[in-house]
């Protein structure tokens, strides 16, 4: 199978819309087909990785724990925009998995290197 470089560009907060969950499902599918998958978290997308999500009260399945499975899928390239974190009063310590914090410009360079960009 041909391997392509896929990047999911996540810009939406979790739970308010279905986008964040859909992105995660696509990541798992692409990774199951052994593609080179990376994720970029920009704008409200950084909220997806916030620690301590307790979704019982809104009766929606939470997916904070699922980020921990990405390593099993060999998905280890998680990039988070520094500007987006700072604007929201967050830092890498607030996030549930290890990530690489980069400037938006550096994430832009990584986007240029991809074969496929998927926007969520």
């Amino acid at each position: 199978m041909t391997t392509k470089k896929f990047m999911m560009v996540n810009r939406k907060a979790p739970y308010g819309t279905i986008y964040a969950w859909e992105a995660l499902e696509v990541v798992l599918i692409a990774a199951a087909f052994e593609q080179d998958v990376s994720l970029a978290f920009l704008d409200d997308g950084v909220y997806q990785l916030k620690k301590g999500q307790q979704t019982k009260g809104i009766e929606i399945k939470g997916f904070e724990k699922t980020w921990g499975a990405l390593e099993d899928y060999d998905v280890t390239q998680l990039y988070v925009a520094r500007e987006s974190l700072e604007e929201r009063g967050l830092s890498a310590e607030d996030l549930t998995v290890p990530v690489e914090v980069l400037s938006r410009a550096d994430i832009g360079k990584l986007m240029e290197e991809q074969d496929v960009l998927l926007s969520f």
Partner: peptide, 30 residues
């Protein structure tokens, strides 16, 4: 802690603010 905090604080005199607990907790922000 976010960039919007100042605006909200500035409006606290004119508006009474409430936030839904279940939605705060779901987002890890309670």
């Amino acid at each position: 802690g976010g960039a919007e905090e100042k605006k909200i604080k500035g409006a606290l005199g004119r508006f009474k603010f409430y936030a839904l607990i279940a939605d705060l907790e779901a987002r890890g922000l309670g």
